[in-house]
Design a binder for these strands. Structure first.
Lengths: 321, 321
DNA sequence: TTGTAAGCGTTATCAA
DNA sequence: TTGATAACGCTTACAA
């Protein structure tokens, strides 16, 4: 691949001048030489080395989004938001999946730092009593020292501007809605143990006067399991709110398979309002994932951000009465 | 952040020596100095600049996976495969989502090339009569010249080793199975128009003696729409095979909502065997997505690959009789 | 076993 | 308006 010095030679112009025309610098260049450089670049198929550029400018046009699980549409929605605004300005948004836990997160963070990423966005929640919390905090600090903007889109145990919605309030509001509609006995299917987000949603549920709570997770199967447990217990609650949509759909499906009428016999609600919720007409709460992604990208472009909490909204559909 | 020269100064040792101990070079270094360097690095919190390293070695430890849509579990499965083997060897796998079509693909490809990515894997299929096909082919060529290994995991219109399964055969086999089970009138819900993959699956269906075919897509809603169309036509076929699982699930759901018994009245099958297929017990065909991802990563580590076609397998469950 | 120095491909400072 | 040239942080001959 042609480099600046190739162009320089080909066009009979200094490297500095070539650089100036090829990267749209403000420095004035005569129209004549500009054309010659452009022509040479065209002929030689010049493409700048982002590597070399990043090395000297100390920042590359990479935005890394560290997600908990790449198959989770929750994260996909965020990633799309980031990409939507990043792409406009020539940033490359890359999503790094850390399914293996915070060890993997740490690995991705370090690599992103080592590549001087312009932005590092943590899309997922931190874990309570995370053994690698300290190492993570240090690496975050290092990354910032290298010039990366680090953002948290959920509660984390390190210093970073946050772009959030209120998980506790979201869980509270849907539960309160159900109570308002006359449901007395409401069961909450919890999220994965140890995630801050799980705890927040659980707290919101409890604060709204929810009664029982059973272990769950964030996956469809967890919802099925929870429904089975409820079914086996012999007596169903008036309503079930699940830690997220996918679990709610698991519950819903299992219940209906077992001949339980939803919402006539029991109401079922989720949280997140992702695509699958539309498929089944699930009552849930809409959270601003895409907008969070957009704002995160803006924050890295603007090189910083204020903490912000974005609004959520109930999406009442037909799995609750 | 500390750099090599900081370490060098702090340890009273040349930069070259520091480099040698810090990057595990084969060049011999005395145990004593090695320790001093390590100690200095530790104290100063040294982290190498992947950028600088990549600039001189002409290859960075980045594997880019260009997918068609980051929310599609099809791609997620591939990405996981890549990541699984890439992570072991310290490669950073980043997925770039090109929902906006091949213009976006081109953008990602160029960026990955500009960052001297070690590997660039195209997870999704190319489009027939793609206007940016030529630009794409050129950029692929450039990337290869810069040392990137470029791989295709579906049919593409540029030169690259392929790691595939046989889409046509997959569609053929599931259709043939249905015929063997005595279904005569079989309808195929097509994939998105213009994708090579769609055409291949359609061809397989036809070759197996499938009769009718109606437009569809790759999304749940497309399946619903197709079911509606079938329902409206007044007469249902014996079986329906959809271009992928998600569409099949859309068909299935809509049909059942309309009171049609599946599989008693009509059989429904998909292709891909992704997670949702398990949720509903969908008959489908398992394709080796994860393995393709793994092989792709291996190929970049080994700096090249032979073309290979991986086997698929029928997964007969309970939406067909 | 250690060090010197020449790149890698840019950008940016300073003169001309 | 243009051009030398010194960084950026690292690897790697080549010398010592």
């Amino acid at each position: 691949m042609a480099s600046l010095s190739d162009i320089s030679r080909h066009a009979g112009v200094s490297i500095a001048t070539c650089s100036r025309v090829l990267n749209g610098s403000a420095h004035p260049v005569s129209e004549a030489t500009r054309r010659r450089v452009l022509k040479a670049a065209e002929e030689l198929g010049y493409a700048p080395s982002a590597l070399a550029r990043a090395l000297v400018t100390r920042s590359s046009r990479i935005i890394g989004v560290i997600v908990g699980d790449i198959v989770d549409p929750y994260f996909a929605e965020i990633a799309r938001g980031v990409e939507a605004v990043g792409a406009e300005l020539g940033y490359l948004t890359m999503v790094c999946s850390a399914e293996l836990g915070s060890e993997a997160e740490l690995g991705h963070l370090r690599q992103l730092r080592d590549y001087h990423a312009a932005g590092i966005v943590f899309a997922g929640s931190g874990r309570v009593d995370d053994p690698s919390a300290e190492a993570l905090a240090t690496a975050v600090e290092d990354a910032r020292n290298r010039g990366s903007v680090v953002l948290a889109l959920a509660q984390r145990d390190f210093e970073a501007p946050t772009i959030l919605f209120d998980n506790e309030a979201a869980a509270h509001d849907i539960t309160a809605h159900l109570r308002d509609r006359g449901h007395d006995r409401i069961t909450f299917v919890e999220g994965p143990a140890g995630l801050h987000t799980s705890a927040q949603r659980r707290n919101g549920f409890l604060r709204a006067g929810g009664t029982d709570t059973i272990p769950g997770g964030f996956a469809y199967e967890d919802g099925c399991a929870a429904a089975n447990q409820l079914l086996a217990s012999g007596t169903l609650p008036d309503a079930i709110v699940a830690a997220n949509d996918e679990v709610a759909i698991g519950v819903l499906t299992r219940l209906r398979d077992a001949g339980v009428k939803v919402p006539e016999d029991v109401s079922v609600a989720g949280i997140d309002d992702l695509r699958p919720a539309h498929f089944v007409g699930l009552t849930t709460v809409s959270v601003p994932l895409h907008e969070m992604g957009r704002r995160a990208a803006q924050a890295v472009l603007e090189n910083g951000a204020q903490d912000v909490v974005l609004p959520h909204a109930l999406a009442i559909r037909n799995t609750t009465r």
